[in-house]
């Protein structure tokens, strides 16, 4: 088991490095840098001025070196001009000796956001916290209902209940969040239908969550993921229900309820568990749309702002977080699979 974990962690780190490098490369393409120079310096800079600005701010170095600096494994650049040493790690107005040589993601230095004028780490921490709350409620709503729907549909394959639930799950998975979100807003919070049960914006939820201001965004994300998990659970459940050991249980004289709860459930949940974890990254997708739609200023909203305003450091920070989330959930799904399934709980 320890071995297995170690191997998982190693591959995870390797994947994270590759992915962040790709993102770094994409966000640091010359046109982006030119835009950065113009927005930081002066919008009417000449090409020569842009080049010199980039040179002075360490952007002219080789890509790999810049990536290393950003990551914190290569010493930050320094530049001596007119007797003043400036550098990546040198805060303005301090002496070079008072600053560390390395300053990258690993040292906790995530850079400065150009849009919010605040350290990236701070922004991400608060925004991620807000999204975390949103995701927590999404999970609370989505997982139990999806599993329940899947189990109910799968325990008697082909029954009317199965057909109704399956159709519903296909519909919700097939509807993207920007459609379901808009429909939900129109139906439940606009004067067009008149059912003003919930609020169409979740801005106030950032200060205090109420059922009224938070239910719609949560539901929008949950609906999308729910259909998928429910269908997986149903497939897994209906397969388990045809297994020999289910027949054994039936022929022991166990009632249908007992067969489902005691014999089928655990076996049927092994496959969906993996899916739930793998669903997580996809939900981030929905988060971006829903947060923008409901004006909930979480992580997804921040990502949109960063991308729209060429905020390179913030964008990089966001992608690091996204990569970590994806990899960690994947690892959790593997470990969970091993724990649920006694047959492979070995080496």
């Amino acid at each position: 088991m320890l071995n297995f974990l170690l191997r998982r962690i190693l591959t995870m780190v390797a994947t994270a490095l590759v992915l962040t490098f790709v993102v770094f490369w994409l966000t640091n393409l010359p046109p982006n840098l030119e835009k950065l120079a113009k927005s930081e310096g002066n919008a009417r800079m000449t090409d020569a001025e842009v080049t010199s600005w980039l040179d002075r701010n360490g952007h002219a170095q080789p890509l790999l070196k810049r990536y290393g600096e950003w990551l914190g494994v290569a010493p930050g650049w320094t530049d001596e001009r007119d007797g003043v040493t400036s550098g990546r790690c040198i805060a303005r107005g301090t002496l070079p000796e008072d600053n560390p040589a390395f300053c990258g993601v690993l040292q906790g230095y995530w850079g400065q956001s150009t849009v919010f004028k605040a350290p990236v780490s701070e922004i991400i921490a608060t925004r991620l916290g807000l999204t975390g709350i949103l995701m927590f409620w999404v999970m609370v709503l989505m997982v139990p209902s999806a599993l329940l729907i899947g189990i109910l549909a799968g325990m008697r394959e082909g029954s009317r209940l199965d057909r109704v639930l399956s159709t519903a799950s296909i519909t919700t998975t097939a509807t993207p969040e920007y459609v379901s979100g808009v429909i939900l807003i129109v139906v439940f919070s606009s004067s067009m239908v008149g059912l003003k049960w919930f609020k169409g914006t979740a801005t106030s939820a950032m200060d205090g969550i109420t059922f009224e201001n938070f239910f719609l965004p949560v539901l929008t994300i949950a609906l999308y993921g729910m259909g998928y998990i429910a269908r997986m659970t149903r497939a897994s459940m209906s397969e388990v229900m045809t297994a020999q050991y289910i027949r054994t249980a039936r022929l022991k004289g166990a009632s249908f309820g007992r067969v489902v709860v005691r014999h089928a459930l655990r076996n049927a949940l092994i496959a969906p568990f993996t899916v739930i974890m793998l669903q997580f990254p996809w939900l981030l997708n929905g988060v971006v749309i829903v947060e923008t739609l409901f004006n909930f200023k979480g992580f997804g909203w921040t990502l949109v702002q960063a991308a729209g305003n060429n905020d390179i450091q913030l964008l990089l920070g966001c992608s690091v977080v996204a990569v970590v989330v994806v990899l960690v959930t994947q690892a959790m799904s593997d470990v969970g699979y091993v724990l649920l399934n006694p047959r492979i709980r070995v080496s």
Partner: peptide, 22 residues
């Protein structure tokens, strides 16, 4: 249900498949 398992019991071919793995 009262009969199955109590009065009539059945054993079939594949033992591994007849036992609940979990």
């Amino acid at each position: 249900r009262g009969l199955r398992g109590r009065e009539i019991a059945m054993i079939y071919q594949e033992p591994m498949a007849s036992l609940n793995p979990a």
